[in-house]
Nucleic acid binder design. Sequence first.
DNA 1: ACAGAGATTAACT
DNA 2: GTTAATCTCTGTA
Length: 209
Amino acid sequence: MKLPLSFYEREDALAIAKDLIGKVLLTNVENELTGGIIVETEAYLGPEDRGSHAFNNKRTGRNEMMFHSGGFVYMYICYGIHDMLNIVTGKKDIPHAILIRAIEPTVGLEIIKMRRENCKQSFKLCQGPGSLAKALGLTKLHNGIDLKGNTIWIEDHGISFKDDDIIAAPRVGMNFEGEFKTVPWRFLVKNNKFVSRPNYGNIKSEVQK
DNA sequence: ACAGAGATTAACT
DNA sequence: GTTAATCTCTGTA
């Protein structure tokens, strides 16, 4: 069943990012059902986060969805080419969002392989945020979608990883200096081949209990 | 008005 | 390891 709105509206975005590991992301685009188990996420927190699009409360047409209340989709294009899927969390006017970086595809594998026709290795089908969006048929046109609807949603199938098997690491692509460059706000499943860049950041620490 | 950088990927050498 | 692909927002004028 779908996660309740209360899951997304919590103010602790780091807890949500970690809790999303093991949940099942599903999309129904062009009448094709696709999805899989979330194995990697990254949290972007509020106006203080130098790595966030909403740093310093910067508010533009592109990132407006980050200021929405939780339970909605924020999508944008990176490097002019790749569409990225984020889950908006927390309260209205506080720009929290979780980037979904990788899933283990389990639903609609044939469709996913067609959308990713150039991908030869099955474990790379949804590995990395750009690949993930392409595999699930998502583009920036899906920005603003409500996760309560039937286009993009997340379910709890009772899958859970032990705390010891979830690693917190620095986020990918933080090209600036300072505290927020290395905060361990990326969560990934240890020894999972569907995860992107497992050794990135050189700082590995286990999630605090 | 225009140059530059970015939450990246895949195809090269 | 290096690089091209190429959209959107920002800083500078």
